[in-house]
Write a protein that binds this DNA or RNA. Structure first.
Lengths: 330, 330
DNA sequence: CTGTTAGCGCCTTCAA
DNA sequence: TTGAAGGCGCTAACAG
């Protein structure tokens, strides 16, 4: 492996001159620069960034910890982070923590040892554990999700409440009077906010809320869907707190011979790829996942230290094929 | 940031003793070791791997270049690579090359500068360009896909031919006589092999092949699907060379009022998540993507140099809901 | 405009 | 069982 010293010897200059020339330092004469570049080329030199890393104290690397790389939902986040990092010529170290505290702490250790210049932690379940590990080192970190009211750490999230409100409102405007809501696990903050958004819209319009609880999995959507659709007076629309559950509800409806969207409107949340690709694609509230990833990187890298402590992005109602005018008087 | 020298001073030993103690070198007495660990703990020491990296000439990092992180298909590959790398306490640098030669070479440069210990290049379109960049450096590299007959580089792929054969055979065994095949872009090697597998099965059974060409996109599946299903004598089954096209065909059938699977069987290839989540989930040939990722890492890390130059994994026919007995005599 | 020197944090050979 | 010294590849402060 050829180093700057090799080039220096060959070109008859000092290695620092080589370093400067290769970094376009204007103090080096064009002639020397040219010569050095030539020699470098001839020798097939390739910069070894590890030297620079040690000398400059930066690694040009950011770390991303994702709870579960199995879930398609995170793909756009990864994409956003990767693309933005590449723009800065930064590389991305990816860790999937499998939603397991142990792996999560392992990931933090690994990234810490590598002295990444910044850390993005997405939707961790063990916020406390993470910040416990992080605090002493005082690294630039941005959380995605985990929008704790009083978090002293910068985070980025989207507005679950207003997103849910929009979804419910959409159904109401289509004339639905009986809109069931299938909530996520209510320990999670965003699940609570989505519920609030639903409640607000429903109450503002003098409708009566009809709440069910799921756990964000497709199978919980299916189970609860079966139940709610077998009721004597079943809802004409259901708003599931995420797309996976919405898909579960659709399966249930399908098995019960209930036609979507003619007899039942369904709306989800997140805009996950599989739901977009259904034969009748799901109407949903898009969480701007990719942009969240990009923004996280920007917060980390742009202003040195994250300046804006908290960023809350808006959501977007994406009307596709599963929502429909309510049927007049069943 | 506290270093080994700080610990050494504090503990009244030399920094090399600290290094050894922290690395469990048996030559250091248990007492000193214990003391050093204690001091390290007290000082909140965290290993800075960058020093080791430079001293040992390894980076404990592998790079993964993926053509397009937008495509869900690659997710399991990333997962496989990430998990296996983590087992070795290696970290993963992820680059999405957006199926663009420029980004691809950028990615190789980035990984080269970082001196990753191994490189995994997945389904590159510019094989020649890549190996041009790689050759001089002679890095351990494993390709995923790009199974060139005479490739001097180690690769891992799956058996597209036999996978396609199995799929076609499955339809034949269900009694289908008219099985259309929607091929991928035939410049790509695997598209050709999938076509071969189909042909072989069909010919072995004295059926007449019915071939259409798509480009692996959903929309091409839709367009071609519309055409083939509007034929006077339309097929009773279609085998699409990947899941995306299969989904396109399903949309087309849906719009034409053709019931799947009762009136039309559809089978795909790859086993991509969205196809798995359809209301009537797609029967398909699973490419063991995750295992391919794991194996690639193993090839890179386990035997020092990749020993087995070429690995071809089997596929698995996953029968779900879109395939059905052929209707007797239409 | 260029060279000298020191140093980033760690590992490792050699010597004691 | 431990210490001293040198080096990995690069950058940077200081001289000239």
């Amino acid at each position: 492996m050829v180093t700057m010293r090799d080039i220096a010897k060959m070109a008859g200059v000092s290695h620092s001159t080589v370093s400067r020339a290769l970094n376009n330092d204007p103090r080096i004469s064009p002639k020397t620069t040219e010569k050095i570049r030539q020699v470098a080329e001839d020798l097939g030199y390739s910069l070894d960034i590890r030297g620079r890393v040690l000398a400059q104290g930066r690694t040009f690397t950011i770390g991303l910890a994702i709870p579960n790389i199995t879930n398609e939902f995170f793909l756009p986040v990864i994409r956003g982070v990767e693309h933005k990092a590449a723009e800065f010529d930064y590389s991305l170290i990816l860790c999937s923590t499998r939603a397991d505290m142990r792996f999560e702490l392992e990931a933090v250790r690994l990234m810490a040892e590598r002295r990444v210049d910044g850390l993005i932690i997405a939707w961790t379940d063990d916020f406390e554990g993470i910040i416990g590990k992080l605090e002493p080192n005082k690294w630039p970190v941005v959380f995605i999700g985990n929008a704790l009211e009083d978090s002293p750490y910068p985070f980025i999230d989207c507005d679950h409440r207003s997103g849910a409100y929009d979804a419910a409102k959409h159904l109401i405007e289509l004339g639905h009077k009986h809109i069931a809501f299938l909530a996520g696990p209510l320990i999670s903050i965003d699940a609570g906010e989505r519920l609030d958004g639903y409640k607000q819209a429903v109450e503002e319009n003098d409708l009566v809320p009809d709440m069910w609880e799921g756990d964000y999995t497709r199978s919980s959507g299916y189970t609860q869907g079966k139940k709610m659709l077998s009721c004597r007076r079943r809802p004409t629309a259901v708003f599931a707190a995420n797309d996976w559950m919405a898909m579960g509800v659709m399966s249930a409806a399908n098995e019960l011979g209930i036609k979507i969207p003619e007899e039942l409107s369904v709306i989800g949340f997140d805009d996950v790829a599989p739901a977009r690709h259904l034969l009748t694609p799901l109407t949903t509230v898009r969480q701007p996942a990719q942009q969240m990833g990009r923004t996280a990187v920007r917060m980390l890298l742009e202003n040195g230290k994250p300046k804006s402590k908290r960023v809350v992005l808006g959501t977007e109602l994406v009307v596709r094929k599963t929502t429909h005018q309510a049927i007049e008087k069943r």
